[in-house]
Simulated scan of single mutants.
Amino acid sequence: MNILWDFDGTLFDTYPAFTLVMHDLLRERAEKKDILKQLKVSFRHAANHFNLSEEQIHTFKEKEKSLSPKMKKPFPYVENILLKANVNVIMTHKPRDEVKLILDYYHWNDYFHEIVAGDDGFPRKPDSASYRYLHEKYKLDIAIGDRLLDILPAKEIGILTCLFQNHSQGADFYLESYKDFDDIVKLL
Rank of each mutant, 00 (worst) to 15 (best):
L11E: 00
N88G: 10
I144D: 07
Y111M: 05
D6T: 14
A85N: 06
I151Y: 13
F75Y: 09
V116F: 05
F18Q: 14
D182M: 10
K100M: 09
Y174V: 08
R44Y: 01
D34T: 11
P16I: 15
L148D: 14
Y178V: 08
L188R: 14
E114H: 12
L39Q: 04
P95V: 14
Q38R: 15
T14K: 01
A117N: 13
K139G: 08
L149Q: 03
E64S: 08
K70F: 10
D146Q: 09
K84C: 02
R124V: 15
L148Y: 06
F43M: 15
I90Y: 00
L52Y: 09
F7D: 00
I35M: 04
P126V: 01
L11M: 01
E79M: 14
L187G: 07
H93E: 11
L26I: 09
L103Y: 05
K37H: 13
Y111C: 04
D24T: 12
S42R: 05
D120K: 09
L83P: 01
F12Q: 10
L11H: 02
G121I: 02
L26Y: 02
K33I: 11
L82Q: 03
F50K: 02
I159Y: 00
D34A: 05
D110R: 04
L134H: 11
D183H: 06
D34I: 07
C162M: 04
L188S: 03
I57D: 03
R96V: 11
I151N: 07
L175K: 07
